[in-house]
Computed example of a mutant assay.
Amino acid sequence: MTNTVQMLETYPAEIGLERQQLAKVIDTLTNCAQTCTACADACLSESADELPRLARCIRDNLDCADICTTTSSVLSRHTGYDARVTHAQVQAAIQATKTCGDSCQEHAEHHEHCRICAQACRETEQALNDLLPHVEPSGQAPRQPSQAAPQQG
Protein backbone atom coordinates (compact mmCIF):
# COMPACT_ATOMS: atom_id res chain seq x y z
CA MET A 1 0.00 0.00 0.00
CA THR A 2 1.23 3.47 -0.83
CA ASN A 3 0.54 6.88 0.66
CA THR A 4 -0.50 8.35 -2.68
CA VAL A 5 -4.25 8.43 -2.00
CA GLN A 6 -3.73 9.82 1.49
CA MET A 7 -1.47 12.57 0.20
CA LEU A 8 -3.90 13.54 -2.54
CA GLU A 9 -6.81 13.52 -0.09
CA THR A 10 -4.97 15.89 2.23
CA TYR A 11 -4.14 18.38 -0.53
CA PRO A 12 -5.89 21.56 0.67
CA ALA A 13 -6.87 23.02 -2.71
CA GLU A 14 -8.87 21.82 -5.71
CA ILE A 15 -7.01 19.34 -7.89
CA GLY A 16 -9.41 19.21 -10.81
CA LEU A 17 -8.95 15.47 -11.31
CA GLU A 18 -10.60 12.47 -9.70
CA ARG A 19 -8.19 11.74 -6.85
CA GLN A 20 -8.60 7.95 -6.84
CA GLN A 21 -7.83 7.72 -10.58
CA LEU A 22 -4.90 10.08 -10.22
CA ALA A 23 -3.49 8.04 -7.32
CA LYS A 24 -3.82 4.84 -9.35
CA VAL A 25 -1.93 6.40 -12.27
CA ILE A 26 0.84 7.73 -10.01
CA ASP A 27 1.25 4.32 -8.36
CA THR A 28 1.19 2.56 -11.74
CA LEU A 29 3.91 4.90 -13.03
CA THR A 30 6.05 4.26 -9.95
CA ASN A 31 5.64 0.50 -10.37
CA CYS A 32 6.48 0.70 -14.07
CA ALA A 33 9.63 2.73 -13.38
CA GLN A 34 10.82 0.15 -10.85
CA THR A 35 9.97 -2.75 -13.17
CA CYS A 36 11.79 -1.15 -16.11
CA THR A 37 14.87 -0.46 -13.99
CA ALA A 38 14.90 -4.06 -12.78
CA CYS A 39 14.38 -5.38 -16.31
CA ALA A 40 17.30 -3.32 -17.64
CA ASP A 41 19.47 -4.71 -14.86
CA ALA A 42 18.30 -8.26 -15.56
CA CYS A 43 19.05 -7.78 -19.27
CA LEU A 44 22.57 -6.68 -18.35
CA SER A 45 22.96 -9.88 -16.33
CA GLU A 46 22.16 -12.12 -19.30
CA SER A 47 24.99 -13.91 -21.08
CA ALA A 48 27.41 -11.78 -23.07
CA ASP A 49 26.22 -13.19 -26.39
CA GLU A 50 22.66 -11.94 -25.58
CA LEU A 51 23.67 -8.34 -24.85
CA PRO A 52 23.81 -7.09 -28.45
CA ARG A 53 20.22 -8.28 -28.99
CA LEU A 54 19.12 -6.69 -25.71
CA ALA A 55 20.84 -3.32 -26.17
CA ARG A 56 17.76 -1.50 -27.49
CA CYS A 57 15.58 -3.13 -24.84
CA ILE A 58 17.94 -1.90 -22.11
CA ARG A 59 17.90 1.62 -23.54
CA ASP A 60 14.09 1.61 -23.83
CA ASN A 61 13.81 0.31 -20.25
CA LEU A 62 16.00 3.08 -18.87
CA ASP A 63 14.23 5.79 -20.89
CA CYS A 64 10.84 4.49 -19.77
CA ALA A 65 11.90 4.32 -16.12
CA ASP A 66 13.10 7.93 -16.18
CA ILE A 67 10.02 9.23 -18.01
CA CYS A 68 7.66 7.34 -15.70
CA THR A 69 9.45 8.73 -12.64
CA THR A 70 9.24 12.26 -13.99
CA THR A 71 5.58 11.86 -14.94
CA SER A 72 4.75 10.56 -11.48
CA SER A 73 6.40 13.65 -10.00
CA VAL A 74 4.59 16.04 -12.34
CA LEU A 75 1.24 14.40 -11.55
CA SER A 76 1.97 14.69 -7.83
CA ARG A 77 2.32 18.49 -7.95
CA HIS A 78 -0.73 20.75 -8.20
CA THR A 79 0.35 24.18 -6.99
CA GLY A 80 0.74 26.47 -10.00
CA TYR A 81 -0.61 23.68 -12.21
CA ASP A 82 -0.22 24.11 -15.99
CA ALA A 83 -2.30 21.60 -17.95
CA ARG A 84 -0.15 22.14 -21.05
CA VAL A 85 2.94 20.82 -19.29
CA THR A 86 1.09 17.93 -17.66
CA HIS A 87 -0.59 16.96 -20.93
CA ALA A 88 2.73 16.93 -22.80
CA GLN A 89 4.37 14.87 -20.03
CA VAL A 90 1.55 12.32 -20.04
CA GLN A 91 1.85 12.05 -23.83
CA ALA A 92 5.60 11.45 -23.49
CA ALA A 93 4.95 8.73 -20.91
CA ILE A 94 2.38 7.06 -23.18
CA GLN A 95 4.97 6.91 -25.95
CA ALA A 96 7.73 5.68 -23.63
CA THR A 97 5.58 2.89 -22.18
CA LYS A 98 4.43 1.84 -25.65
CA THR A 99 7.99 1.78 -26.99
CA CYS A 100 9.34 -0.10 -23.99
CA GLY A 101 6.42 -2.52 -23.94
CA ASP A 102 6.97 -3.31 -27.62
CA SER A 103 10.71 -3.72 -27.10
CA CYS A 104 10.30 -6.03 -24.11
CA GLN A 105 7.62 -8.04 -25.89
CA GLU A 106 10.18 -8.95 -28.57
CA HIS A 107 12.18 -10.80 -25.88
CA ALA A 108 9.30 -12.07 -23.72
CA GLU A 109 9.48 -15.64 -24.99
CA HIS A 110 13.10 -16.03 -23.88
CA HIS A 111 13.31 -13.71 -20.88
CA GLU A 112 10.68 -13.75 -18.14
CA HIS A 113 11.80 -10.35 -16.87
CA CYS A 114 10.97 -8.88 -20.30
CA ARG A 115 7.52 -10.48 -20.23
CA ILE A 116 6.80 -8.98 -16.82
CA CYS A 117 8.10 -5.59 -17.92
CA ALA A 118 6.05 -5.61 -21.13
CA GLN A 119 2.93 -6.28 -19.05
CA ALA A 120 3.75 -3.43 -16.62
CA CYS A 121 4.31 -1.07 -19.55
CA ARG A 122 0.99 -2.06 -21.17
CA GLU A 123 -0.91 -1.49 -17.90
CA THR A 124 0.76 1.88 -17.43
CA GLU A 125 0.12 2.90 -21.04
CA GLN A 126 -3.59 2.10 -20.57
CA ALA A 127 -3.82 4.03 -17.29
CA LEU A 128 -2.18 7.04 -18.94
CA ASN A 129 -4.46 6.87 -21.96
CA ASP A 130 -7.44 6.82 -19.59
CA LEU A 131 -6.09 9.91 -17.79
CA LEU A 132 -5.09 11.91 -20.88
CA PRO A 133 -8.53 13.39 -21.67
CA HIS A 134 -8.75 14.67 -18.09
CA VAL A 135 -5.53 16.68 -18.39
CA GLU A 136 -6.46 18.29 -21.69
CA PRO A 137 -5.47 21.99 -21.68
CA SER A 138 -8.48 24.30 -21.66
CA GLY A 139 -6.69 27.33 -23.01
CA GLN A 140 -7.15 29.06 -19.66
CA ALA A 141 -3.58 28.52 -18.45
CA PRO A 142 -1.51 31.54 -17.43
CA ARG A 143 0.56 33.08 -20.24
CA GLN A 144 3.68 33.45 -18.11
CA PRO A 145 5.07 30.97 -15.56
CA SER A 146 5.21 33.72 -12.90
CA GLN A 147 1.42 34.03 -13.12
CA ALA A 148 1.08 30.35 -12.25
CA ALA A 149 2.90 30.73 -8.93
CA PRO A 150 0.82 30.80 -5.77
CA GLN A 151 0.06 34.29 -4.53
CA GLN A 152 1.80 35.47 -1.38
CA GLY A 153 -0.36 36.76 1.34
Rank of each mutant, 00 (worst) to 15 (best):
76 S>L: 03
19 R>I: 14
48 A>C: 02
79 T>E: 15
50 E>I: 07
62 L>A: 08
72 S>N: 03
23 A>Q: 02
74 V>R: 11
51 L>G: 01
54 L>N: 10
42 A>N: 11
25 V>P: 05
64 C>S: 13
55 A>I: 05
64 C>I: 11
36 C>H: 06
39 C>M: 03
80 G>F: 05
28 T>W: 00
20 Q>G: 04
50 E>F: 11
27 D>Y: 05
24 K>E: 12
72 S>C: 07
78 H>Q: 13
25 V>R: 04
30 T>K: 08
57 C>T: 15
76 S>K: 08
19 R>W: 06
57 C>D: 09
73 S>R: 11
48 A>T: 09
51 L>E: 00
81 Y>V: 07
57 C>W: 01
76 S>M: 11
38 A>K: 11
67 I>S: 02
25 V>A: 06
24 K>R: 13
38 A>F: 04
49 D>T: 10
23 A>Y: 03
65 A>D: 05
60 D>Q: 13
67 I>E: 09
80 G>Y: 02
33 A>L: 04
56 R>D: 15
64 C>W: 06
44 L>T: 08
23 A>M: 05
36 C>G: 01
55 A>Q: 10
81 Y>R: 15
26 I>F: 04
27 D>Q: 14
39 C>W: 00
59 R>A: 13
72 S>A: 15
66 D>Q: 12
58 I>K: 04
58 I>R: 06
47 S>W: 05
75 L>Y: 03
66 D>F: 08
50 E>S: 15
49 D>W: 06
65 A>N: 08
68 C>H: 03
63 D>K: 02
38 A>D: 14
33 A>H: 01
29 L>W: 02
22 L>V: 12
59 R>H: 13
33 A>F: 01
80 G>R: 12
73 S>I: 12
80 G>L: 05
39 C>F: 02
53 R>F: 12
59 R>F: 11
38 A>T: 07
58 I>W: 07
40 A>R: 02
33 A>Y: 02
41 D>I: 09
56 R>Q: 13
60 D>V: 08
74 V>I: 15
56 R>C: 02
36 C>E: 11
70 T>I: 03
35 T>P: 00
63 D>S: 10
32 C>S: 14
37 T>Q: 12
75 L>W: 10
28 T>P: 01
71 T>A: 13
67 I>F: 07
55 A>M: 09
24 K>D: 13
48 A>N: 02
42 A>S: 14
64 C>F: 07
48 A>Y: 05
67 I>H: 03
78 H>F: 15
42 A>W: 00
54 L>A: 06
61 N>L: 01
26 I>G: 03
66 D>A: 15
31 N>P: 00
67 I>N: 06
36 C>A: 12
47 S>G: 01
67 I>D: 09
81 Y>A: 10
